[in-house]
Design a binder for these strands. Structure first.
Lengths: 79, 79
DNA sequence: ATGCATTTGTTCGTATGTATG
DNA sequence: GCATACATACGAACAAATGCA
């Protein structure tokens, strides 16, 4: 994976992650209704805490870019 | 069972449980390749949530003290 | 061979406490 | 005070593996 979070950047970590995920999704890295990496995976890949990863996901959910299903995962919204 | 978790202790609940299980195992309470109580049993005996119990078990797995078999249970590692 | 119960595995949702800038 | 971030913990749902009747 190509997720890079800079803890010393001016931009908050949750926003860095949201930006990178948004870019991957809009670039077609994940297709409609396809699952994006789980919270656990994103925690491992970024080194961020669960709450921070969820904060990032919530940004994308509010934007309508993705939707989550409890117990299943987070998926790209169909266009 | 003699599992006592103090929710007000400084030590996290998952560590308390891991410590107590480790002590029982090393004391011979469970022999090699013998199953330790299931997640459900430990949840009932300690009052802890499933995730917390799993957290405790994962500590012992990392230590190599026990191993888990999906659908079967968690067993003491042979030495 | 089908179905059910048990058990572990994985996932998201939410909340609390602590610490830092 | 507020936003950010981490650690801990509970809850809920879904899934897969196993064993047995």
């Amino acid at each position: 994976m190509e997720l890079e979070i800079d803890p010393h950047a001016k931009i908050p970590a949750y926003r860095q992650l949201a930006d990178q995920l948004r870019e991957q999704i809009t670039a077609g890295r994940y297709g409609p209704r396809e699952a994006i990496p789980s919270l656990t995976q994103l925690m491992g890949e970024t080194g961020l805490a669960k709450g921070t990863v969820q904060h990032a996901i919530s940004v994308l959910v509010k934007e309508g870019l993705v939707y989550t299903v409890s117990g299943r995962g987070t998926f790209v919204s169909p266009k």
